[in-house]
Design a protein around this nucleic acid. Sequence first.
RNA 1: GGAGAGGUGUCCGAGCGGCUGAAGGAGCUGGUUUCGAAAACCAGUGUGCGGGUAACCGUACCGGGGGUUCGAAUCCCCCCCUCUCCGCCA
Length: 443
Amino acid sequence: MLDIKFIRENQEAIRDASRRKKVPCDLDRLVEVDARRRQIQVELDRLRHEQKEGGAQLALYRNPKSPWRRRAAEEGVSEQEIAAETERLQARLNEIKAGTKALEEEDRQVQADFQQLMLTVPQTPAADVPDGEDETDNRELRRVGEVPKLDFPLLDHVELGAKLGIVDIERGVRLAGTRNYMLRGAGTLLHQAVLRFAFDLMIQRGFEPVTVPVMVKEEVMQGTGYFPLGRDQAYLCERDELSLVGTAEVPLTALHTEEILDETDLPKRYVALSPCFRREAGAAGKDTYGLYRIHLFDKVEQVIICRNDEAVSLEHHQEILAHAEAVMQALELPYRVVNVCTGDLGQGQVQKFDIETWMPSRGAYCETHSASRFHEFQARRLNMRYRDASRKIHFCHTLNNTVIASPRVLIPILELYQQPDGSIVVPKVLRPYMGDMERIGPR
RNA sequence: GGAGAGGUGUCCGAGCGGCUGAAGGAGCUGGUUUCGAAAACCAGUGUGCGGGUAACCGUACCGGGGGUUCGAAUCCCCCCCUCUCCGCCA
């Protein structure tokens, strides 16, 4: 959500963002509703003011012991005159009541429309976000690590996994349908090892580990910007009015909802390991092979909540990106960093850097991480603020990034660490998490 | 799931239907005092929205939503949440 004042004064920028991000937003309607909203408030305030004063006066008229009555008596105002005046005032107040009631009714509708429309306004992208339609227009910033030259016929992760008995897609699908899987034996250990390694690295880097709820209320989904636009991507537990989160970004970012923090407590650095649930609606037929696009995975996510300062935000953006890169470098996986283009940006994102890791079976660098900054967008929706040294209140800025998501990252690990004999060498940094296992061989 | 208690400002805690944005305390900030500190004393100390260049003014908010009333933190209805006891259970 953006500041309505900012929206009013920067309509062209919003229109531009809406077009370039391909986020539909009826700005004309919003501006119209906003004008009416303010009109109503001025009128309502006026009516309520008159009501308050009139009501107080009426109390004085009606109370025989009031100072006003005493004064009136001294000045020789007759009982009849007071009674007449009381009646006149009562009539006026009844009139006001009717007027207020009608206006309040309209106000309710207008406020609802206003809120609805406000939720659709896109954040304006940063100046250095490249223009573009979709992910093919993302701009590569750098490549890190060498793609190893393996001079034997490569197997993909599905074949490797099946041969080694560590990835069981067939049975996963049998139990839960398409885009489901089972990890088994060393596959499960590898999965856990990757997550735990990443988690520990973040703790070392000063992030507070948090265990989060993965079923959250409507407001939380809306507050983080996933609803209403992304509603069909989420699994809903309608009976309990809860949604399964697609990432721990949601509960972590919303952690201080409705709070006013102290500036001295910022930035907040949080890390959580959670399951992530994604319906992948609209992705039918896309990436159906293997462990790439699946309904359930585990992810270590990092979130920073910081001061409302563009420069500070930028700095943290680089910081969270660096943490993720450190993980990839420790795993010795070749990756590249891309500056995500406007068409591929989410509604609330100011800018997003993806890390794409080389996946031999796909013959491409593919997204494994996504680092976003939002400025106030999420904080406004969540009403998450802080007080600065001069007691002024501001909305926080928020940022988040993947630390590691598995099993997707198992794709490059399995495929790049495979040996001619079909076994997998365990990346060095993961061995302590796997009972010093150095190699995954056939059972 | 059954029974009871309760939800008020940063916290604790009052609150006959109008004079209560809300007593009183604590905390915090500033000042006085002190060589300095503590203590004591004095003053200030919620958020949103609207209007105004501004000082400021208006209005809303006492878990949420309706209702009664000229007027509701205070009365009525519905919902939510927390706590205690009992039952069940990873």
